[in-house]
Computed example of a mutant assay.
Amino acid sequence: MASTNITQLLATYIHALHILHHHGVLDGYGHLSVRNPDNAATFFMMHQRAPALVSGLDDIGEYRVSDAEPVSPGTPAAPLERYIHSETLERYPDINVVLHGHAGELVSYSISDVPLRAAIHMAPFLGEEVPNFDITKYYLPNDTHDFLVRDQRLGAALAAEFDSHWGPGNKSSLVLMRSHGFTAIAADIETTTYKGIYAVVNARVQSEAIKIQHAYSGPRAEGGGGIAYLTPRQIRDSWQTEKQLIQRPWALWVREVKVNPLYVNELDPDR
Rank of each mutant, 00 (worst) to 15 (best):
Y83E: 09
A160R: 15
A78P: 05
Y63F: 15
N96V: 01
L9D: 04
N39L: 07
W239N: 07
R248S: 07
S72F: 03
E105M: 04
Y138G: 11
S55F: 00
I210G: 00
A156F: 00
N260M: 07
A186H: 11
Y29H: 13
G225V: 06
T136A: 15
A228H: 08
V201Q: 11
Q213D: 13
A209T: 13
I197K: 05
R248M: 08
R248E: 11
N5E: 15
G155I: 07
P76V: 00
E222I: 10
P70S: 14
A251L: 09
I6T: 15
S108G: 02
T241C: 07
I210A: 07
E208P: 01
Y216H: 05
S110Y: 03
Y263S: 06
L20P: 03
G225Q: 13
G127N: 07
A160W: 09
Y109T: 11
I235R: 06
V205N: 08
E208R: 12
P269M: 08
V254K: 13
E190P: 01
W250P: 12
D143S: 10
S108C: 01
I246M: 08
W253N: 00
M45G: 02
V200K: 11
L89Q: 05
A203N: 12
S110F: 07
T183I: 06
A16I: 09
L32E: 06
F182E: 05
T7A: 12
I111Q: 03
G223N: 13
L80T: 13
A78L: 04
G28I: 08
Y216A: 14
D113E: 12
P79R: 01
